[in-house]
Design a protein around this nucleic acid. Structure first.
Lengths: 343, 343
DNA sequence: CTGAAAGCGCTAACAG
DNA sequence: CTGTTAGCGCTTTCAG
């Protein structure tokens, strides 16, 4: 006869009683670390199993001052880069025995995350979308809340920061494009608020200048947000110029995918008439429909690093603030090479 | 001189002392609900602001037996449907003042989520990937843990379930395809474990039979997982048949996108030579590169419903278990209509 | 090795 | 309206 179909708010006290030990002993076998006589431990464990007891996490959290929750702030999940980061961060956190609470902020309001750290609802925060305008977060950082910035970083903030080398990535694109002899170089850029975007476009510009091929301002267009549609529209504009570019560098992949579709819609052959280069190497970039040359960020390593840093900080090892910057890789695909997938 | 650059583990007691009131009064102004004299309240609030105090969430959670965390289980975020669901669920939860903790299970192990409810680390769980094989979750449900199933449902489980009408959706596809006079009807199906998939493919089959156009088994192929690649491969197989289908129904959009790319890679014109139909209406389905006819699930309404049900259950209104099933909509795009985006 | 006892910071009666 | 008083379920000394 199964009787536990109703509520069973068991506590360690109940277990103690049933196992004829003190409540403290139950606690000891649960934490596993302290010395308990093997027989006693077995007896207690048996009762726990028998009664299907689970310790109350909140009580433990309150006592230990640690929830095991890590907040992760991403921006609109519509940009496939963020789901990918979430997936990877989730894996890393799970492996570390932590839970991931997600805030999806539409380019604004990381206040919720900042509050949550300050209220001890999460042990720390991994921030993928920080900018110098992230005021509530900045305050949290100043109060020594465990925060690590990943992907986007903010110079001067006293916290751990993990990024990839966006400057180098953009330089490799500039070098590639010039070496390939492209003449009319287009750029679809964005607001220079995020460090990633800023570094990419400014490095791209200055490298081109260095190479004696400064960007023609009429071939540069700025989008105010990152989506397939804005990329589509921006690329359409450039393609409709009397003298359209023969290569476009897009500051991220979503933009580039939109641009690819704009070319498709106009019957512009890629890479025949137009080369297209993105940034991030999201999964879709490799799909035959896009087959996009792009710059890959080492997301896995970045996530791993970020989680490690955050754990150190949460556990109070008050080391200095690290700034790690990992190398990127130019991934050449059909949107710039000679062959084409399109019929 | 800013002195709070160091740790400040303030408690309501500290505020009480500074505001010359009892600690209980501080608690009262924080919860806002109980009667406090306006002047007192103001004084306390002033001190709180002044000292930048934030109440300790864990202590509150322990007292109220409510964390404000809701677990959401999704499967591999590589399927764009899940990020979309996460985004929408996140919005709904945020609006309800709740936090979203995410578990990304690769088609397995929702055990972590089940544990978390049982340990009171989350108030409830929204499950998007349940199947009859989800044992740990089933146990949690049997113990009355607040769980709601969304998207995929499992017949017979005593918990709230929110789905869309996959049967009707598939029927509308069958009707559409037959009415349009397609002759060789292909199907890319999956393992019938998830209710969504099972309902779609079985309804599609039986409707075709009803219409006197039973499915030709040689035009059916089953994939063992859902990704762009598996869709690509499955479609490639069908297209390489001596007599390939002139329409393919894919049990979800990711598969269909892969199929679209397979057609592209082979130079098969869509919709000229091949019609393509997916299911879910993920954001990318509308991109010009795919322009996919598909069936839309009312995700927003489903999420809203699920969160509402979960809140009721968490707050202990021990109503009966609801099963809501919302209508779907056939969205016709270029992959079946007369025009084409491809050059 | 184990039990007794003291709280973690808060909410919620219960008196005044 | 406000203060006093109990704990929530656990971890962690401190004795024995």
């Amino acid at each position: 006869m199964n009787t536990n179909s109703s509520y069973l708010p068991l506590t360690s006290k109940d277990i103690a009683k049933a196992a004829k030990v003190s409540q403290a002993t139950v606690s000891r076998v649960l934490s596993g670390n302290t010395n308990v006589q093997p027989e006693t431990r077995e007896r207690v464990l048996a009762v726990i199993r028998e009664m299907k007891y689970r310790p109350n996490g909140m009580a433990r959290a309150m006592r230990t001052n640690r929830t095991g929750n890590i907040g992760v702030v991403v921006s609109r999940l519509a940009n496939p880069l963020y789901p990918e980061m979430l997936q990877i961060l989730g894996q890393e956190l799970t492996e570390a025995g932590l839970r991931m609470v997600v805030w999806n902020t539409d380019e604004t309001d990381e206040g919720a995350a900042a509050s949550a750290v300050r209220e001890s609802l999460v042990d720390g925060v991994i921030m993928t979308t920080a900018t110098s305008l992230s005021t509530p977060l900045y305050e949290a950082v100043m109060m020594n809340a465990p925060v690590v910035l990943i992907h986007r970083v903010v110079e001067g903030w006293p916290c751990d920061q993990v990024s990839s080398d966006n400057t180098q990535g953009a330089i490799s694109v500039a070098d590639y494009v010039v070496k390939a002899g492209r003449k009319r170089i287009g750029l679809i850029e964005g607001a220079p608020l995020a460090s990633t975007i800023r570094d990419r476009q400014s490095a791209f510009r200055s490298r081109l200048t260095e190479l004696g091929r400064p960007l023609d301002p009429s071939l540069v267009i700025r989008v105010d947000s990152f989506s397939h549609k804005t990329g589509f529209d921006a690329a359409s504009y450039l393609l409709d110029l009397a003298q359209p570019p023969d290569v476009m560098f897009c500051v991220n992949d979503v933009i580039a995918l939109g641009a690819r579709d704009a070319a498709r819609a106009r019957g512009v052959d890629v890479p025949g008439q137009l080369w297209l280069i993105g940034y991030d190497d999201i999964e879709m970039a490799a799909w035959p429909a896009f087959d996009l040359t792009t710059v890959r960020q080492p997301l896995k390593r970045m996530a791993h690093e970020a989680v490690a840093l955050l754990r150190d900080r949460v556990s109070g090892a008050s080391l200095d603030h690290s700034t790690v910057c990992l190398p990127t890789e130019l991934v050449i695909r059909g949107s710039t090479a000679g062959h084409r997938m399109d019929r």
